[in-house]
Amino acid sequence: MPSNITYQEELKHKQTLKLREQINMLPNFCKEFFIGIEPTTSILTRISYSYDLNMFFGYLVENHSYFSKKSVHEIILSDLELISSADIESFMEYLNFYVKPHKDNPEHTLEYSNDNKGKARKLACIRSFYKYFYKRQRIKVNPASFVDMPKITEKPIIRLEVDEVARLLDIVESGEELTETQLRYQKYTRARDIAILSLFLGTGIRVSELVGVNISDIDFNLNGFKITRKGGNQVILYFSNEVKSALENYINERKEITPIAGYEDALFLSLQRKRINVRSVQTLVKKYTSMVTNLKNISPHKLRSTYGTNLYRETGDIYIVADVLGHRDVNTTKKHYAAIDDEKRRMAAKIVKLRED
């Protein structure tokens, strides 16, 4: 990677190529849709839509009597008018469980299933797709608008408790419970791993934001660092002295490492001396947290939820939590942390005594 290209630019280049690859697998008229929604959607949303539409058209070719006579590339815009709301509902039912050939070994198959959240995302894509062409009077019908969204049941927030957080950091520092093989590698990554986990637990940073942090983004006089949010805007996150200590310890070790060319400014490096990637961080988090609890599946996002929960408990200010976590809509934050308000109400009910014991 050339040194004059930032992590965000490199990532955007890769995402752009991935989107083009997916669009090329779709009917030709779909390109117009993706160009049309570009100003109002993120590239991640468009990539997600491209996967969903590829799946939808693939389903039609395999299961619809009319489309079975065509390949995906032979489908034209007017063909959309031949799809009924019942066809879309059948696709929704299909998503409950389906089997596909293994990409690398066609003789083997893989089983897939979607919960209501996954089905709702795909239906939102199809609705947006039809709405785009219907609004521009390119098609005369919009069957997707008649299909009901699946009901999504909110799941409770999964997070680490205070004692689990302390134990997690203790395990990384001491190496306790790690295997001999893990310990051999961990002596090179201990300071880095503590810094990564401290950032998650002390700032609520997203994993995609964390891997993009550069050394030059950090100001220890300010106890803050610059990040690029999902929408592309830059903000400063602040950290405590405890997080500062973890970062300084790691950076002192980081100075002794010679990065691969192009990664000189990257904060967190892999053992290959390149910028660490999202998957490696996810694996790191799972490795350590599985030693703390085997009942919770903890991901980087769950560590983010842990921070959000602790911040809300300490401040009681949902707007501060929404701002620090980078939620565009405070209702998203309220929805996720409403359970904490319920805990407080339960505590309040027990405080007031009607009769002395």
Results as ranks from 00 to 15, higher is better:
Gly224Asp: 08
Arg279Pro: 09
Lys244Trp: 09
Ser84Gly: 15
Arg127Asp: 05
Arg167Gly: 12
Asn331Phe: 12
Gln272Asp: 15
Pro300Trp: 06
Lys287Asp: 15
Lys287Glu: 13
Ser240Ile: 03
Phe33Asp: 07
Asp342His: 11
Leu354Val: 06
Asn331Leu: 01
Val213Ile: 01
Glu314Cys: 01
Leu269Lys: 00
Thr283Gln: 15
Ala338Leu: 03
Pro259Met: 11
Arg190Ser: 12
Ser113Asp: 15
Glu93Asn: 14
Phe225Gln: 07
Asn223Tyr: 10
Glu242His: 14
Tyr130Gly: 02
Tyr312Arg: 01
Asp217Trp: 04
Arg46Asp: 11
Met291Leu: 06
Asn294Ile: 04
Asp217Lys: 11
Arg328Pro: 06
Pro39Leu: 07
Ile158Glu: 08
Ile251Asn: 08
Ala339Glu: 15
Pro106Glu: 10
Gly224Thr: 11
Ile276Ala: 03
Gly308Asp: 07
Lys244Ala: 11
Arg313Ala: 04
Leu26Met: 09
Ile157Phe: 00
Ile76Asp: 15
Asn241Gly: 09
Arg279Phe: 04
Glu154Ala: 13
Tyr307Gly: 08
Leu19Glu: 05
Ile251Lys: 04
Glu74Ala: 06
Met1Asn: 12
Leu178Tyr: 09
Ser113Glu: 05
Glu253Cys: 12
Leu271Arg: 15
Asp52Ser: 09
Phe29Gly: 08
Asp341Asn: 06
Ala266Tyr: 05
Asn252His: 14
Ser42Trp: 10
Glu107Arg: 00
Gly232Cys: 12
Pro259His: 13
